[in-house]
Design a protein around this nucleic acid. Structure first.
Lengths: 237, 237
DNA sequence: TGTGCTAAATTCGTATACGGTTTCAAGTGA
DNA sequence: TCACTTGAAACCGTATACGAATTTAGCACA
């Protein structure tokens, strides 16, 4: 690990990334470089560097009125899901073979937090606990490049995952899938882990598509990136 | 396609990316933001934006004395190869199902350029033709996210690929693999394309590892990113 | 001839300013 | 009341300058 002082740009990037990974920002949040700079006590340049890095990594999209969180189309949900199904089953199998006592304990704690969040209808907690759970099993994957790539693709689904969590039935189903994966990890069974992950991913994709299709039916608006919704109250539209 | 005028940063990025994809830069080339800016008639900020984007995408690594091309360790060669083997066989199978006359013609032309470059010991031409060939079959992959991800991972091997091309036997073997893939595409046989791609990737990985191991034996130096090799003549070291 | 120290050079990170483009709000006219 | 036009505001892209940290080169001494 490096001990050199962290730059403004790196600090801002890490903070924004955490928020984007855990669904802390509203889907229509706009990141304006002057605002971000002011928020972190820096100037536009390091804020801009952090924002552009998030753009390069797929977390944000630039527009003439700030940077926004991209919304996955139905096609993109399908494509990203196919790529993930090529990677995650094997990664889960690999992780299943690395289940030492410390990893098992961490996974037990994480699934406990997921159960609590589900029981309390705590969406924020569920989003966070989901990230913790995935980070634990990904840390057990020997191939670090594979783990990092999977994490990056998982993050792309943060906004739509948050959308599915708003529905109690989808929440319960998602957690049931995680329970199955957790059981496979506890057994240390590579085949079971791979199969559980595959099944979970098909179910998750179906939920994502259903929620997205519903959103498209409900709002029937062009993509948000080219429109900024009025934020001030009072003026009728 | 967008017709809005291209920014300095985008123009510089596209030019540097092309060079990095085709192996136009020496492995020890240093990209200094003031030099890049001067080269493209711009200021440091757009040059810096382009360089930082290439860092975020894995093409460059930052240091206190400029940006450099990362050198893959043996472990990284293994990890990246495993990830690619999870993605490319399926992508090749998908492409094999999309072999319309135009794609076939383009692939024929591309393999022709590869044969010419091999016969003429034209390394620069071979590097370029290899990129052309892969871009053609990747364009035939239905899942655009999968295609883009594969292209990104392929680019990571550009420096070591150039290293293998310096040896005539590796060059011939690499092209033999491409011929086999080309034949499978011409047959439109998904299974054959997948198998040919898998075999080719194991062979390519073996060559990459051999060349890298040889480099490590020959130079026995610490990673280049933390050392700048003297470039000026005359002063004995 | 080699090593160590010091000063200069090189590069990056960041701050500030300016101009251009896009968007929005307000006012006027029909 | 609605639509159109104009002006202002908001934001991005880029240029320039400054300071800090790191590296290199040169000189002196042993």
């Amino acid at each position: 690990m490096e001990c050199r002082p962290e730059s403004h740009a790196e600090r801002i990037y890490a903070n924004l990334l955490d928020g984007l990974q855990t669904g802390a920002f509203a889907a229509d949040h706009r990141f304006v470089d002057t605002e971000v700079a002011a928020q972190y006590g820096a100037s536009r340049m390091p804020a801009r560097e952090a924002l552009l890095r998030l753009v390069a990594e797929g977390y944000l999209t630039g527009s003439t009125r700030g940077f926004v969180i991209p919304t996955l189309s139905l096609g993109e949900i399908g494509e990203l899901s196919e790529v993930r199904r090529l990677l995650e089953p094997r990664a889960a199998a690999s992780a299943a073979g690395n289940m030492d006592p410390a990893v098992r304990a961490d996974l037990d704690a994480a699934i406990g937090r997921i159960r609590d969040a589900l029981e309390n209808d705590d969406l924020v907690g569920l989003m966070r606990a989901n990230v913790v759970f995935r980070n634990i099993w990904l840390a057990a994957v020997g191939n670090r490049t594979l783990a990092a790539t999977i994490a990056r693709f998982m993050d792309r689904f943060t906004p739509i995952r948050r959308g599915t969590f708003e529905d109690a039935r989808y929440r319960a189903s998602y957690v049931a899938g995680l329970e199955s994966i957790h059981a496979a990890f506890m057994e240390g069974d590579a085949l079971h882990a791979s199969d559980a992950m595959t099944r979970f991913m098909f179910d998750a994709e179906a939920a994502f598509r259903a929620v997205r299709a519903h959103e498209l039916d409900t709002v029937r608006t062009p993509p948000r990136a080219t429109r900024t919704r009025p934020e001030k109250e009072g003026r009728p539209s």
